[in-house]
Simulated assay, not measured.
Amino acid sequence: MPTDVDAGRSGLDLTDGWTRRWTVSWRAGGDDASCSVHDLVQEPVLTSDPMRRFTWRRDQRHRPGLQFLTSTGRHHGAESLKESRVLLALDFAGDVVDVVWQPLKISFVTCGKRRAHTPDYLAVTRRGVWLIDVRPEPLIKEADRESFAAAAEVAVACGWRYAVAARWREHAFAGLDAMASRRRLRSDPLGLRPVLLAEAGGGRRFGELAAATGCEPVARAQLLHLLWSRQLGVDLAGPLQDRSLVMPAKEAAGDRGGGAGPFPRRRAGAGRDGVDGRAPRTTPGPGAVGEGRRHPRADDLPVPGQPSAVPAVVTDVVGGG
């Protein structure tokens, strides 16, 4: 069941002029800056530095670290394993230009009090900008719901979309992690990739496709790389296993209604500029304040079981542990 982002809206001060009363602060080049939500769309927050840094201690209960994204060619910070999963899902989803960790702090008014909230990620994609919070569903309290609702209002005001990653589908990360293990596989000394792409025409089972090459162990690694890079498609609504149906990306997209589809074709290295693979820090033009979209429903949004642009608005994406 999706977590309702709107559940915390009741206590927010959203009366006329709220976009001028609420403020946002960020950090760039070591300097702090701030503005009202009304003026946020004119500010360079999409290229900001993290609002805070993480540290390690022996007794801490979460595990911070760095996650490398092939989409940006850089490491990005994560304060927990849950956040690392979100970064991996963003990397797989495609169309990611840049991801800013702890991008900004929102100061909002609720019941006569002023509170602050720092979302976890700002993801810039070629399909728009996403503001993302990460919080395991059992740990979400009423104050968190209020903070999430405030972040959603700011996102809508800026023409961005908002998501809370709270619970992964049980099988989703086993398949995603398997493909990620081969995402940086560069070489194909046995020339198996053209064979696999040709054999997949019309759809073949993963195990059959690997066995058809005569070099099954190596073919499995190459298959995972082709799936990660979206040259082949597979339905991740179920577990990734030998009987999973694999087909060329265009055919997979066509089976789901054409267009970009849930399996958009992505060339290896697509979306990167320069020899070091870094993505340019471009700033898609968000709409004017008040021109944002409605809060999306969970079924509006892509999830690892339905790969497309970014993980879903709260929810049915994240699993237990």
Rank of each mutant, 00 (worst) to 15 (best):
Asp4Val: 09
Ala7Phe: 12
Asp16Tyr: 12
Trp18Lys: 07
Arg20Met: 11
Thr23Leu: 00
Thr23Cys: 05
Ser25Gly: 08
Ser25Cys: 14
Gly30Ile: 01
Ala33Tyr: 10
Leu40Thr: 04
Thr47Ile: 03
Thr47Ala: 11
Ser48Phe: 00
Pro50Lys: 05
Arg52Ile: 12
Phe54Asn: 11
Thr55Asp: 15
Arg58Gln: 15
Asp59Lys: 15
His62Ser: 10
His62Leu: 11
Pro64Arg: 04
Gly65Ala: 12
Gln67Val: 14
Gly73Met: 06
Arg74Ile: 06
His75Val: 12
His76Tyr: 12
His76Ala: 11
Ala78Ile: 10
Ser80Trp: 09
Leu81Ser: 13
Val86Trp: 12
Leu90Lys: 03
Leu90Glu: 08
Phe92Gly: 05
Ala93Val: 02
Asp98Tyr: 06
Trp101Gln: 11
Phe108Ile: 08
Phe108Arg: 08
Val109Trp: 12
Val109Gln: 14
Val109Asn: 11
Val109Ala: 13
Cys111Glu: 11
Arg114Ile: 12
His117Asn: 06
Leu122Ile: 00
Arg126Phe: 02
Leu131Cys: 00
Glu137Val: 03
Pro138His: 04
Asp144Cys: 09
Ala150Gly: 00
Ala151Gln: 00
Val154Leu: 05
Val154Met: 09
Val156Ile: 04
Cys158Gln: 09
Cys158Thr: 09
Tyr162Ile: 00
Ala163Asn: 01
Val164Ala: 02
Arg167Lys: 06
Trp168Ala: 06
Trp168Glu: 04
His171Cys: 01
Ala174Tyr: 09
Ser181Ile: 03
Ser181Tyr: 03
Arg182Trp: 03
Arg184Ala: 15
Arg186Thr: 11
Ser187Asn: 07
Asp188Leu: 03
Asp188Pro: 00
Pro189Arg: 00
Leu190Asp: 13
Gly191Thr: 01
Leu192Gln: 06
Leu196Tyr: 09
Leu197Tyr: 10
Leu197His: 13
Ala200Met: 04
Ala200Cys: 02
Gly201Trp: 01
Gly201His: 04
Leu209Glu: 07
Ala210Asn: 11
Ala211Leu: 15
Gly214Thr: 03
Glu216Val: 12
Pro217Gly: 13
Ala219Gln: 13
Ala219Phe: 14
Arg220Asp: 13
Arg220His: 15
Arg220Ala: 15
Leu223Ala: 11
Leu223Met: 08
Leu223Asp: 13
His225Val: 01
Leu227Ala: 07
Gly233His: 08
Gly238Tyr: 03
Arg243Asp: 14
Val246Glu: 04
Val246Lys: 03
Val246Ser: 05
Pro248Gly: 05
Pro248Glu: 05
Gly254Val: 01
Arg256Phe: 12
Arg256Pro: 01
Gly257Pro: 08
Ala260Met: 14
Pro264Cys: 02
Ala268Lys: 14
Ala270Met: 09
Asp273Gly: 07
Gly274Arg: 09
Gly277Val: 01
Ala279Val: 05
Ala279Leu: 04
Arg281Asn: 01
Gly292Met: 02
Gly292Cys: 01
Gly292Thr: 02
Arg297Pro: 11
Arg297Lys: 14
Ala298Lys: 10
Asp300Ser: 15
Asp300Met: 15
Pro302Val: 05
Pro304Ser: 02
Gly305Val: 01
Gly305Asn: 00
Gly305His: 01
Val310Gln: 13
Val310Thr: 14
Pro311His: 05
Pro311Phe: 03
Ala312Met: 15
Ala312Thr: 15
Gly319Ser: 05
Gly320Thr: 10
Gly321Gln: 03
Gly321Ala: 05
